[in-house]
Design a protein around this nucleic acid. Sequence first.
DNA 1: CACCAAAGTGGAAACGTTTCAATAGTTAAT
DNA 2: ATTAACTATTGAAACGTTTCCACTTTGGTG
Lengths: 322, 322
Amino acid sequence: MTSIKDVANLAGVAVGTVSRVINNSGAVKPKTRQKVEEAIQELNYFPNEVARNFKMQKSKMVALLLPSIWNPFFSELAYYIEDELDREGYKLMLCNSGGKPEKELYYLDMLRQNKVAGIVGITYNDIENNVSNDIPIVSIDRHFNKKITCVTSDNYEGGRLALRELVKAGARKPAFMGSVTSVFSETMNRREGFIHEAQVLGVDYVIYEKPDPIVDNQAFISEFLQKHGDADGIFAITDMFAASYIDQASKQGIRVPEDVKVIGYDGIQDSPYFHPILSTIRQPVEEMARTTIRLLYDKIEGIPLEKQVYRIPVVFRQGETT
Amino acid sequence: MTSIKDVANLAGVAVGTVSRVINNSGAVKPKTRQKVEEAIQELNYFPNEVARNFKMQKSKMVALLLPSIWNPFFSELAYYIEDELDREGYKLMLCNSGGKPEKELYYLDMLRQNKVAGIVGITYNDIENNVSNDIPIVSIDRHFNKKITCVTSDNYEGGRLALRELVKAGARKPAFMGSVTSVFSETMNRREGFIHEAQVLGVDYVIYEKPDPIVDNQAFISEFLQKHGDADGIFAITDMFAASYIDQASKQGIRVPEDVKVIGYDGIQDSPYFHPILSTIRQPVEEMARTTIRLLYDKIEGIPLEKQVYRIPVVFRQGETT
DNA sequence: CACCAAAGTGGAAACGTTTCAATAGTTAAT
DNA sequence: ATTAACTATTGAAACGTTTCCACTTTGGTG
């Protein structure tokens, strides 16, 4: 492979000069620059980025650590994250943890060894203590403590909004359904907002939480239907969950939205696949992604951040299920 | 940051020895090894992977270049690719090209500069000439020439299968619908298989292709419905396209499967979101992903490949649309 | 006990850059 | 013509590894 040295030889200058030409740093006489550029052309030389990263002790690589890219919410997020990174010449490394603690830690170690410039983390476990201070992290929907900045949708408002919409659609006894993924998860505020608004409005409500994320959704939903057959409105913690509920309910002859209104959370639907079209609290995925990366840039450059948690507003999107 | 030199100093040995301990290469006395390991512990040292990559002139990074990770077919593929890579300690870099030629080339250059170990490419353009010989590539569904190995589902058989299933489901005049993405795309064989089987069986058929992928799907489908209202079976080139067709058709009062049978291609549905459940030709995404990576490993290690195109068998999956 | 092969270790070069101090060249004012 | 003040360029060190050659130690054999 041709190196900067070959270019220097051919152009009859020193390597330092070639470096300055390439990086437009320092002064170079136009004539010299031309000689060097010709040599670069001639040799079809391009700089070895690995050597640069090594020398500079930093790379333009950002890692995205998430449970599974297969999940449509995450794949949309990843799309925008990559797009925003590319604008500044950063590259994206993708790590699927499966939500497993040991894999999250394994990847964190690996990323440190690879000296990535930053990490976007969507983790199920408290990675606070397993993360060195020398590598900036921004998390999405997970709020640990000072070290890790968090970007999230406004889950609390989303919960309030969902309850209001259910009531507006005619529900007399709305229920919150979902599974706990992590005690650090900001998503739990969806429940708090829901409860708060129900109390403010003075409506009867049900909270039904699945303690263990491993348990089968279907079984959990069946159980709910038995115990709370009188619930006539469902706020599901995610769209995915809402879809499971609708599936299960319709198998038991329950009609949506006639018998039960359903609202999801995420708003990942905008493909012709999805039916029925869910009423949902739409997360502004693109804005969350871009905000996350811009905050990460600030951290990388050592700019102190104003806040610890950045909440992006959500909106209700009417579908066919309310 | 602590380096191998610090470890050597603390352990009272030479850097070469520390290196041998870390890499389990060459002989090291147990006693020495212990001293070194203690020093590593003490200093909390971990090897600088960037320096290694630099020295070794190679990295364990593989790039996945595709139009958009947002597409559920690609995100499933990416999931398995990452999983297979991780088994051998490789990392995945994600590049969304948006299918734009200039971005594909831009990424290709970038990847070369970054000395990735290999590339998995799902491109719309002929990248054959823009790719150096020193970096192994395996493409999915795109067949250029000798240099680039191609992994694809058995599109031809898939096309035959689709036609047979449509006929079996009662269609008298089946149609193939789709848009051309690239002349190099293996996916076009779906059409060939469809045509071949129709001729073998002696059934009347329609081929309706959208020349320009940019044109709006909805408009294209409306046009088709006007011109070929008598077609009573649709083989859509992708599930996504099938879903669009069903949407559009149902808006015009056409019922699926009563009036028209529909078969898609991909089989990306296995989430409760999707309704109706499509009858489809299922691509074995996981097997394709793993095959791709294993072939890439062979190429990386210089092992010559037997074939130029690897076709993975497909199966028909019954849904609610036939 | 002397000798030899094998095992273990040290030390330095090399990988391709950037950067910086030192030197050389140029310009403009005296 | 001399010098001061820049501008342009050189050359070498440094980044953290691995690897290879040379040297030293060890253990076994005659």
